Simulated assay, not measured.
Amino acid sequence: MAAIRTIIFMLIFYGLTVPWVVAALIGAALGKRPMHGVIYAWVRFHRWCARWILGITVRIEGDIPAGQYLFAAKHQAMFETLDFLNLLDTPAPVLKKELTDIPGWGWLAIRYGGIAVDRSGGAKTMRAMLKRTRAILATGRSIVIFPEGTRVSPGERPPLQAGFAGLYKIFDLPVVPIAIDSGHVWPRDSWIKRPGVVTYRFFAPIPTGLPREEIETRVHRLINDLEMGGD
């Protein structure tokens, strides 16, 4: 049954994503507001498909703070990549440069406010990324980053990438760690999605000014809290 549900989800969600991208491109020609409206309708549609086709629901634990933060989250599935747009107030995501190469969608991701990271790039690429981040923060938006740097399976806890501490130090932003367990219903090593609950556990903001080792240790522990059976 899970396989049948997944096939139906793929046909409906991905099939309708193409015209949605076209609509967003048209909206972008009219301005950021129409484009944002189409994008937010698309991610709500994604949540609807996950709920009513795949049987995946969402549970929020903790408070989602208002204000400007560096949201640092566990990353186990594509699910949260899109769903953060439902949860947070116009967050600007840090994403792999390869995603911005997808025709149409990649251009929209950058236009929306995505911050592309090219790990193979040199100092010039890093300066351009920092300049873009500074410009986005100047608009009052928050940043979402997956500090482990990649999507992982449940139980995997790779070390944090250096870029996370760099953003924390350079831009002097408080950090909100988020533990997520989406990999149990949206597994990395299988195309079949399973019904169940995705939990987002939001922790209290961590203040600015901490030494690199301390902020990395605290964030790494908290974003893996669900994996370690934390209450």
Score class of each variant (00 low, 15 high):
68 Q>K: 11
50 A>D: 13
56 I>N: 02
61 E>A: 12
62 G>R: 05
53 I>Q: 06
59 R>K: 15
38 V>Q: 02
50 A>L: 15
73 A>R: 09
51 R>C: 08
64 I>L: 07
37 G>L: 04
30 L>D: 01
26 I>K: 00
29 A>T: 10
31 G>P: 00
36 H>N: 15
58 V>S: 03
44 R>L: 11
28 A>W: 11
36 H>I: 10
50 A>S: 13
29 A>Y: 00
65 P>M: 08
45 F>T: 04
74 K>I: 04
60 I>K: 04
46 H>R: 03
40 Y>K: 13
66 A>C: 12
52 W>P: 01
35 M>G: 01
30 L>C: 12
36 H>P: 02
63 D>F: 05
63 D>E: 15
47 R>H: 14
51 R>E: 13
41 A>S: 14
49 C>W: 06
47 R>C: 04
68 Q>F: 10
70 L>K: 08
62 G>Y: 10
71 F>M: 08
49 C>F: 09
36 H>L: 14
46 H>D: 12
58 V>Y: 11
42 W>R: 04
61 E>M: 12
62 G>A: 08
67 G>I: 07
31 G>K: 05
32 K>N: 12
44 R>W: 15
52 W>C: 04
47 R>Y: 11
50 A>Q: 13
32 K>W: 12
31 G>L: 01
43 V>M: 10
66 A>F: 09
60 I>E: 05
59 R>W: 05
26 I>A: 11
61 E>C: 09
43 V>S: 13
47 R>F: 10
48 W>C: 12
34 P>C: 02
37 G>A: 11
69 Y>D: 02
62 G>D: 09
29 A>F: 07
32 K>E: 13
26 I>Q: 00
37 G>E: 01
54 L>R: 02
56 I>R: 07
35 M>K: 00
53 I>Y: 09
58 V>Q: 10
62 G>Q: 09
68 Q>R: 13
26 I>Y: 00
28 A>E: 04
64 I>P: 00
48 W>I: 10
36 H>K: 14
31 G>I: 01
74 K>R: 14
48 W>D: 04
29 A>S: 10
53 I>N: 05
73 A>Y: 06
60 I>W: 06
62 G>M: 05
73 A>K: 03
35 M>D: 02
41 A>T: 13
72 A>I: 07
38 V>W: 00
26 I>T: 03
41 A>M: 13
69 Y>S: 07
65 P>G: 07
